[in-house]
């Protein structure tokens, strides 16, 4: 295959890896040199797309929005607290009544009493510690997926079959979904629904990478 054709094919389908050897050819070949010049000009022209303009009002707008958000949050908290007061009081009274009746009727044994006064009942269901454990396991899982990703990377960088190309596209979509979910989770760490969704996407990524690695072996 001629170098010109290889250069053209590289422009159509190539990857970063094959560039240096073809660059030498293009520097010495008039038609290919034009393509190469345009290729290099893209990076040279890119910084000219930086946009700088004065917007003296922008910080004022942001500050105002932050203060409004803070006021709305405080007002909402105040409303919730005042609304929550009577139902909580009623619920506490009802609970106390039921507990008193229960104690009179059932009279728990010493063992049961120990169980009822055990410290574990005083802790909330999902604590910061528990969440930290979840995050640590998630980090380990992500690290193992990254290792798998490195195994699959050479094949994905130069996909030799349409199937591998579609795997690569799928992985890009999955990475987008992961980035979005992680961004949402950064804002709401205790959201278990988001965590489940993120886990499902990671599992799909793991499954896809395994298929890529198997494809590599076959």
């Amino acid at each position: 295959m001629s170098d010109c054709r290889r250069f053209k094919e590289w422009l159509d389908r190539g990857t970063e890896d094959g560039f240096s050897e073809l660059e030498t050819h293009a520097a010495a070949c008039d038609p290919c040199r034009e393509h190469l010049q345009l290729w290099n000009a893209i990076s040279q022209a890119a910084p000219s797309l930086r946009k700088r303009w004065e917007s003296p009002e922008l910080w004022v707008r942001i500050e105002k929005a932050i203060h409004e958000s803070r006021r709305a949050e405080e007002a909402s908290r105040g409303r919730k607290e005042s609304r929550a007061w009577w139902p909580l009081l009623a619920a506490a009274a009802a609970l106390f009544l039921v507990a008193m009746i229960g104690l009179r009727v059932f009279r728990p044994s010493l063992g049961q009493r120990e169980l009822l006064t055990s410290r574990s009942f005083s802790k909330p269901l999902l604590t910061e510690d528990a969440l930290s454990d979840v995050e640590k396991s998630e980090e380990r899982y992500v690290a193992s997926i990254e290792r798998l990703s490195r195994l699959a990377e050479p094949k994905l960088r130069q996909p030799s079959t349409p199937l591998l190309i579609s795997y690569r596209e799928k992985l890009l979509l999955l990475d987008t979904a992961i980035a979005e979910l992680r961004s949402q989770l950064d804002q709401n760490r205790f959201n278990t629904h988001l965590r489940k969704e993120l886990l499902a996407v990671y599992q799909e990524k793991q499954h896809t990478l395994e298929q890529v690695v198997r494809e590599e072996k076959s």
Partner: peptide, 18 residues
């Protein structure tokens, strides 16, 4: 109104097409 003072290649001929 744009100040391109910090953009090193503000007048690059390829800018609009790019």
């Amino acid at each position: 109104p744009v100040d391109f003072g910090s953009a090193p290649a503000a007048d690059h001929p390829l800018r609009v097409d790019l």
